[in-house]
Design a protein around this nucleic acid. Structure first.
Lengths: 118, 118
DNA sequence: TTATATGATTAGAAGATTCTAATATAAGAT
DNA sequence: ATCTTATATTAGAATCTTCTAATCATATAA
């Protein structure tokens, strides 16, 4: 993976990587919400929600449309956000491999390579 | 989203959210690697690689099998890791909505709800 | 058993993130 | 005009993360 892409992706993932921000994203997955809607749901201050929304906005994960004094926030990349949340909610059993399994895997991929050549 | 889950997922995403760790994960996606293999690829010190591997290990994203003095690292949740990398590499155009679009969306979902009741 | 290779740990400085308190801004209501 | 409602900004303390330097541990080779 090239380092620029790694850096860029890490920045994006950092925006996801906070409990409050994940909850905001999940809520916006259900539909447009304004800041006071989120205040009703999340146990954090208005100021803090605004700050997290700024982080999400900088990451281009959310944006808003102004409606009078109210800002209607929405997901600007819903497929990305929903994809991440779906992946996280799936069950991913933790594998364990022995040295022997790894050796066998290497042997197998070696054979395949030979087979392709032959 | 319940707060415990949000916290847990945020912890997991933090493990992903570093350029060097993403590069390690991408490399392990290609197959088992030991620490010196990674030293050859990444422009960081052995110590730093070990530290990042510890973070990844604590997040249960990688594990290793010992082979003499060498540790063969592998992805312990390859579907999860590859899923995240695949999502990130896909193109996700950034949407923009006007207040009017949002109003129309709300009207539509309202109608749907009424239709179900009728 | 001494040397070499592989990899981990620890301490601490530097930097980034997060939260709170105070304040600001802008729209709509009175 | 003033008040209220909705939301953002700023400053700074507290905390967390990351990197470097030094050191340790273990396995194998000489």
């Amino acid at each position: 993976m090239d380092p620029d892409r790694a850096y860029e992706w890490a920045e994006l993932l950092k925006a996801f990587a906070h409990p409050t921000r994940l909850q905001i994203l999940a809520e916006l997955g259900k539909g447009t919400r304004c800041v006071t809607d989120m205040e009703d749901i999340l146990p954090v201050t208005q100021v803090n929600i605004s700050q997290h929304l700024t982080v999400l906005r900088n990451a281009k994960l959310v944006d808003f449309a102004q409606d009078g004094a109210v800002r209607c926030y929405y997901l600007s990349r819903p497929k990305l956000v929903e994809g991440v949340l779906t992946l996280l909610s799936a069950d991913h059993p933790v594998l364990r491999k022995t040295k022997e399994q790894i050796d066998r895997e290497k042997a197998r991929s070696g054979k395949e390579r030979v087979a392709v050549r032959a």
